[in-house]
Write a protein that binds this DNA or RNA. Sequence first.
DNA 1: TTGACGTGTCTCATATAATGAGACAATAAT
DNA 2: ATTATTGTCTCATTATATGAGACACGTCAA
Lengths: 213, 213
Amino acid sequence: MERIVSAVGVVDKAMELVGLVEERPRSLADLVEATGYSKATTHRLAGSLQDHGLLRRDADGRYVLGFRLVGLGRRAEHYFPLANVAMPILRELVDKTGESAQLYVREGDSRVCVAAVESPHGLRTIVERGAVLSLTAGSGGTVLSQGSSEGWVESVAEREPGVASVSAPVLSRGAVIAAVSVSGPVERLGPSPGALFGGEVMRAASGIAAVVG
Amino acid sequence: MERIVSAVGVVDKAMELVGLVEERPRSLADLVEATGYSKATTHRLAGSLQDHGLLRRDADGRYVLGFRLVGLGRRAEHYFPLANVAMPILRELVDKTGESAQLYVREGDSRVCVAAVESPHGLRTIVERGAVLSLTAGSGGTVLSQGSSEGWVESVAEREPGVASVSAPVLSRGAVIAAVSVSGPVERLGPSPGALFGGEVMRAASGIAAVVG
DNA sequence: TTGACGTGTCTCATATAATGAGACAATAAT
DNA sequence: ATTATTGTCTCATTATATGAGACACGTCAA
């Protein structure tokens, strides 16, 4: 929760509140303590955000993310299909590694494949676009379940027998917003897929992050 | 685009910008004209929102909704699964009308069924959860494509032959966030499904709206 | 080339608007 | 009954958002 400092202080404060509420539902007192702002300011700011639908209050009176954000999020996705941005980079990744590459985003307690490019090999990993996978198994799951991280994560025969993979986080403002994975048969990727393709996967991930901004 | 007035002016202005960008990508000059704020203010405010990831700039330099919103939207949905809230109300609606009921949200230029309960009748309308339907046909589409409205909308054999439906908007702060529909065969719903079930559909819609807040 | 125009960026004095202390109310806890 | 704890609201003060306008850059036409 690093505090972003922009040219407009009030926006910074407001977004700080949103960020805090994003983590978990918060009472007013909770927000006051977390921010250090006066009760009055916090209350007024949160009230304003509530008026705009960015926050709302649950049955217990705690602030939670507002419904407006759902619509805005959908809209934002529409204008910026992460999948489209990622596709050329994933293709490049497949060209370089010869293995299948995927992009995953977290969705609740699982992860969803939002983009995938298949290896040209006869024996290859296949993950369908839209496929829902576990968050607790596979290198991609590890990356997405860790709040923030750098570098790559590898897994061998964890999610599925015979399959090995390396994944790297796509970071935006320090947060993991997606995971890029390269996966294929253990026979080709060997005991340490990371040593083999970790660098390439990280490059692809930061390439996507660069476009996302 | 009614301008919300809260206790914090800057938040109002910032959200006004976000709202304008939500409609379509906007250049700075465009935003200046639409808001009436000075170039400096608009630029500074938009820049601040950009720093926070609520806005970003596309290849042409125009402002579009930022990526942060996607994450926040997902998170908001997680804390408030519209579908879960709607299910018991839809079930009740099916009990009362004997016909299938659905909840739709807008998704770009189409609508998506996020919740559905089927009629017990042998002959019934079936809309799968996750199904993508037209925004330009059917009473549900009409409701969602109109910015704001009240009351119910009916359609007979518009989207599909033999199918009639009534829909009502789920309103949140004056905006249509979803549409509740009841649909079934013309044979049962007759020439005016609205006269038959309009009231019930509206009651269900406002029931959902009440929980959304 | 030159000039005119549209666009985005940035600075700075001024006045507006956000701020925090604190009073008050309403529950919850002991 | 007493004491915390929480949320709400008012008002004087000062911090901060504001808009005019200068500047830079690119585009188009003559």
